[in-house]
Design a protein around this nucleic acid. Sequence first.
DNA 1: TATTGTTATACTCTATAACTATA
DNA 2: TATAGTTATAGAGTATAACAATA
Lengths: 159, 159
Amino acid sequence: MNKVPAKAIVADEDNGVDFGPLPQMLGYQIRQAQTAVFRDFAAIMSELETSPGEFGLLTLIGNNPGISQVRLAAIYRLDKSTLSLTVSGLVKRGLVRRTRSKVDQRYYGLWLSNSGRATLRKVRERVDAQERAMDAVLRPGEREHLLDMLQRIAGAFSD
Amino acid sequence: MNKVPAKAIVADEDNGVDFGPLPQMLGYQIRQAQTAVFRDFAAIMSELETSPGEFGLLTLIGNNPGISQVRLAAIYRLDKSTLSLTVSGLVKRGLVRRTRSKVDQRYYGLWLSNSGRATLRKVRERVDAQERAMDAVLRPGEREHLLDMLQRIAGAFSD
DNA sequence: TATTGTTATACTCTATAACTATA
DNA sequence: TATAGTTATAGAGTATAACAATA
């Protein structure tokens, strides 16, 4: 039994399936693209054990040292309880430090540890490679246009 | 300067927060757009109790009457166990009928019930409204270009 | 009273593995 | 042996509500 390339199998299996209006729907195609990128992300991160969400949080903490959890939750669009759990995981893995604010002891300040910075650098390399993989199917100028349109769409539904 | 770019609004709301390289990353912006659309979908579906995934499945079943579960799982990129659970839910809600194939009794054929067709029509109205909301932030021709780019990106990772 | 953060709990979506029934 | 489908189980990721500590 000859092995057929995976892509050909998919195309072959899709043969004769009617997707109806789905391919023309932005909601559907955005979701398809997102799950494809997400799956690939998980695969390339198998060694570093970092999720897309954690990558985003590490980046934000790195760029905003001392940021509080409520602030981070607000800009990342997560409930503070969800953020608390995720940050606790990062703290347990030694990537993030949490320090009580001196001026208002209700606040934590979040900071990357040296280990967190090192991990972020390695994750960043793989993320950049993934971005280049996307550039490979885009023509010059298309990335900027795509980013702009996606931002407009997210903005259309924000609150 | 007739209109304020979306980015300026975001920057204003998130006053003082440095997003670093995230806004220039396709992975990040696709995810942001997807979660925004998903959240809105859940909100407008509160009455009809239908998820984006269920909408996609109902559409595919409606356009491919008698399709089997493995086939549906393959084209929708879900494990057959996941699909089994989701379809069971649709069957329990009376939206989908499952009939054993006469020629090969291992197979089920999936069909929309009358109730399923009616529900799909109502869901479709709301989904179409959501699509028009996205069109409101896009210029002529941009939808087609965006769909094309998203398809290319999903294709870049589908092996 | 209001705000920051934690914890208990639960829900959704997903996959892996073991299973049954059929081929 | 191979395939279609189910079930048991588990793991992300997320939210709500009740709570403690601080202001």
